[in-house]
Design a protein around this nucleic acid. Structure first.
Lengths: 216, 216
DNA sequence: AGGTGAACGGACCGGTTCGTACATTAGGAG
DNA sequence: CTCCTAATGTACGAACCGGTCCGTTCACCT
């Protein structure tokens, strides 16, 4: 034994193979779309063969579903980490918006997969193990912030948390999902590092202005 | 001659055939994506044959490009109609936002084609007859409104028109492009007629709150 | 050690799909 | 009327692509 801590490099390792297929497939589907992605190509970029894709996932659609669920699972895990309970409502809201912003910037594959899934009318997401995968924890955090803000008389009292979530989401998703056509038309790269802080501040300003509108 | 005004129903009509192909292809590409759309299927839904697609557009990619350019051309034509010069800045801005909202609601195919084009990194849009097709007239209208708003001391003076345009666009595009996953996750159909007025008012409120933030 | 089942590889198949060669007709010009 | 070309239809080919068949090898268990 040269290394006892290392769990021994097995030639045959189901979990290892499965995970590698998912990883490669995530990039391929995100890059090419569902119809555009090629099972042969995914297999080729793996250390294993196409046979294994069918062995583990049943087929192209099964693989896509696994990719989608994996992506949502990872995102949900990240969302659950955020803790803004200790901040005052206005600052907490801004931070939530900025964290969503960072989040979407750091996971372009996820943003693209969501766009692709929408092209397919979310039919995979609708069936899947929906109820378990879904339910964004970010929304619960937001609800709490807004409750506190309302109680303190800082926020408007006619607002729905889901509406506010949509505003933040729309901004951050748009930036990632539409950056290419936006750049082609307006010649502005929304992912230009020099623009990042500006946009990040903007979504904070925007949502704060909205929930505090009418209050001095 | 049974009808003199009717331009005679010709059996062979290049423009007619061409237009019908574009129309059908627009729906197919918007519905299935580029890779998902089938040339045979498009041809079958036309009164003509696949041969004509290759005759007029050279191939699948050429057809897609023609569809994309046509969609942008139609949208641009609509944008040029809007006239808010007679309204005061705040109302004008709200109206612009609401018109964009209506606009995206009435042209779901366009919204989907933009999403699809982004999946392809806007490579078709970037090459194409870009400079001519692009340049959204809506942005010029917006610039004028903001200039007037600033001059009247109603708007903040540190805002960029393109930023404001992005906010409006993000909201309206998100509603159309992400409605399916949003509905799957939050069980709220963003195109539910009962919700329409609420969302329409919201984008107006949002953008007005943003540009007037800090002003009493 | 040897048996057993999970994990794996590679060749292959059948339908699909983009694209084309070739034949044909409509309809206007002269 | 005739010719000539734009416009159109039919049939087919070749590559592609998702999916499967069959055989092989590894790792663990007794």
């Amino acid at each position: 034994m040269t290394a006892e801590s290392a769990p021994k490099e097995r030639v045959r390792d189901a979990e290892r193979t499965r995970a590698e297929i998912i990883e490669v497939a995530t990039h391929e589907f995100a890059d090419q779309g569902y119809a555009g992605a090629r099972v042969d190509e995914i297999a080729a970029k793996t250390r294993t063969t196409k046979r294994m894709i069918y062995y583990y996932f049943g087929g192209k659609e099964g693989l896509y579903l696994a990719v989608l669920e994996g992506a949502y699972r990872r995102i949900r895990a990240l969302e659950q980490e955020l803790d803004v309970e200790h901040l005052e409502p206005v600052e907490a809201l801004r931070r939530l918006a900025e964290m969503t912003f960072d989040h979407h910037e750091q996971h372009p594959d996820f943003v693209r997969l969501v766009a692709i899934e929408n092209i397919h009318y979310a039919k995979h997401l609708s069936s899947s193990s929906s109820r378990e995968v879904l339910a964004a924890p970010a929304l619960e955090v937001l609800s709490r912030i807004m409750e506190r803000g309302r109680a303190a008389g800082l926020f408007r009292d006619d607002l729905d948390a889901l509406d506010v979530h949509m505003i933040i989401s729309a901004f951050c998703v748009f930036r990632g999902a539409n950056r290419y056509t936006f750049n082609a038309i307006f010649d502005r790269d929304l992912f230009d590092p020099a623009l990042r802080d500006h946009l990040r501040t903007m979504i904070g300003d925007l949502v704060v202005a909205h929930v505090t509108a009418g209050r001095s």
